[in-house]
Design a protein around this nucleic acid. Structure first.
Lengths: 165, 165
DNA sequence: CCATACTGTATAACATGTGAAGTATTCGGG
DNA sequence: CCCGAATACTTCACATGTTATACAGTATGG
């Protein structure tokens, strides 16, 4: 009786060489640098992203609607909804209904919100500067460019819903 | 009356040039490719990582304890605990107490677990091959190497607890 | 031995990620 | 006009991430 054929050993790329894991580990290492700093101001990474997006919109007429903030912060609707509720309760941002389209909420930072950003931003930028110094600013820029190219390539393989690519 | 000095405009790096966002977006683009595939087998990305780790340990004496799986899958204890409970309920893995140290659970895939891996792995690898083809295998390898260097550099700035670096 | 510190794992509590369904408003064709 | 489709958010339900805490088992110094 011939031996039954050995089951084909399952071939699987090792973790260390897998793209999603590499991206996850690098991001985790980066975020670890910021998390303690943000936590001291009762901010999570995501809330900080929202504050940043609204700051970038500018203090003058810098009202963004929820959809624009979602795009810029890369947050999904449900998370953003919760975060906006929290930031509004804390008096850091204000929501007003867009008079031209009552489905939209327009978001602006309050003075307290802007104060908080002004307080947190310097250390945040200092941490980032530390990363650039340690890894090399040019090399970092190259890596970011590669990441963007990768994102584009992957989006071709499976476009995000709503991505006009 | 002289105008009060304009408040220093808060200088913040634009999102698109920030490292954590770049890593997040790239990872999200990559995971989008795998998620639907895994969902068809009632697997999440994290559960799949656990199955892979146990597969890589080998069918023969491939028992890993929870801590080893946590390291290899890059999952934190609480998430891993929940996932192990689920996979055990589904009959995909078995937990046995390590006789040499009763604090440890030893984990092995059941035959059903190995079957599932054998079923899922080929398409998973095919998706990965598609990424390599689209982005370039060599370029991808270079990117992964850069990511690892970055991780090392960032770990120097803030070592993980327990990292002997 | 034994009290104590340490280690491996699990649980709790809260925030976010993800997909699906719900609500209010607007738009567009008949 | 008016009704159905589309849009902008929100809410729900469940899985994971993150931090702190609990707890059993093990090692260690006295």
């Amino acid at each position: 009786m011939t031996r039954s054929p050995a089951p084909a050993p399952v071939r699987l790329r090792s973790f260390d060489r897998s793209l999603p894991m590499g991206l996850l580990r690098a991001r985790e290492a980066a975020m670890r640098l910021f998390r303690a700093h943000l936590a001291r101001h009762d901010l999570t990474e995501q809330r900080w992203r929202v504050l940043r997006a609204l700051t970038a919109a500018g203090p003058d007429d810098g009202a963004l609607d929820v959809g624009e903030v979602a795009e810029r912060t890369f947050l999904l609707g449900p998370s953003l909804s919760r975060i906006l509720g929290d930031l509004e309760e804390r008096g850091l941002l204000a929501r007003t209904v867009d008079p031209a389209d009552q489905r939209r909420s327009l978001l602006t930072l309050t003075p307290a919100g802007r104060d908080l950003v002004a307080e947190v931003a310097p250390e945040s930028e200092a941490i980032y500067a530390g990363i650039e110094e340690r890894f090399g600013a040019e090399r970092l820029a190259g890596l970011l460019a590669d990441l963007r190219d990768l994102e584009d390539a992957l989006s071709d393989l499976m476009p995000r819903p709503g991505d006009p690519r």
